[in-house]
Nucleic acid binder design. Structure first.
Lengths: 125, 125
DNA sequence: TATATAAGATTACAAGTGTAATCAATATTA
DNA sequence: TAATATTGATTACACTTGTAATCTTATATA
């Protein structure tokens, strides 16, 4: 099932987020959904959809005259793939060293920390 | 002090890691240090150093005939910048949602979890 | 001193990305 | 039906990145 996730460029991610939120969607619906989130011309958005199709990250339904698009990978699958390569590149491959830095930097609120503790406890118990 | 960190491409990160490990270093020393870590021709490594200089991420000392190179930003500074943009792009900007995923996926060992708990406790207390 | 070598400077070149515009076909409207 | 508008297809173009090779200049060596 989980074929290697192709690379998704930064601007392409914006499109994917919209499709994960809800799909299938027409190009126009994607354009509308991006109002206020990104400042792209409709043609640009169309190009991004085309590239995602070519990469097989997005599927297309051509039954109707106006095509509809949908993701071919789950969001968490893509997130995991990105996270893995990110951690490898930047933090020697381990979540822990990233987290250490965040904790030391006080980048987590007291509330976050409590929630994390609870999740950890639930897991470990 | 902390000017906006310029973008550092993936292969450039390999070079930076070497320089953070120890610097200043000559190009040849960087080449040696990369033995077994990356499979690049010396010319390629030189190009990467040049680009990093142009981006002002790496400084150069030209006193001697053979230049020496050194980082202009601290590693943790660059890590934080990357982490921030990564989390924004992929996880809606919060460390917590990334961590939630990792915990749910059992991507942390029992030992990791314990260490994290201890760090959290030390912080919160 | 002539020559080989090493270092730095310049150039190369394709793929991917950001950001569209133009062209073509089809449907809608006057 | 002719003109217009919409959608999809094709093309554009500069910048970044990966991955070097070539050119130039200054040492080291014969």
């Amino acid at each position: 099932m989980a074929k290697e996730v192709p690379n998704i460029a930064e601007s392409e991610w914006e499109i994917m987020k919209i499709l994960w939120e809800n799909s299938p969607r027409t190009a126009n619906e994607v354009v509308s959904a991006l109002q206020g989130k990104a400042d792209w011309k409709p043609k640009t958005i169309r190009t991004l959809l085309d590239r995602l199709m070519k990469k097989k990250v997005v599927g297309v339904n051509k039954e109707q005259r106006v095509y509809t698009f949908y993701p071919l990978y789950a969001e968490d699958e893509c997130q995991r793939a990105e996270a893995k390569s990110f951690l490898k590149r930047i933090y020697g491959g381990t979540m822990k060293s990233m987290l250490v830095q965040f904790i030391e930097d006080d980048a987590l609120s007291e509330k976050d920390m409590n929630e994390i503790r609870q999740m950890l406890d639930k897991k470990s118990k």
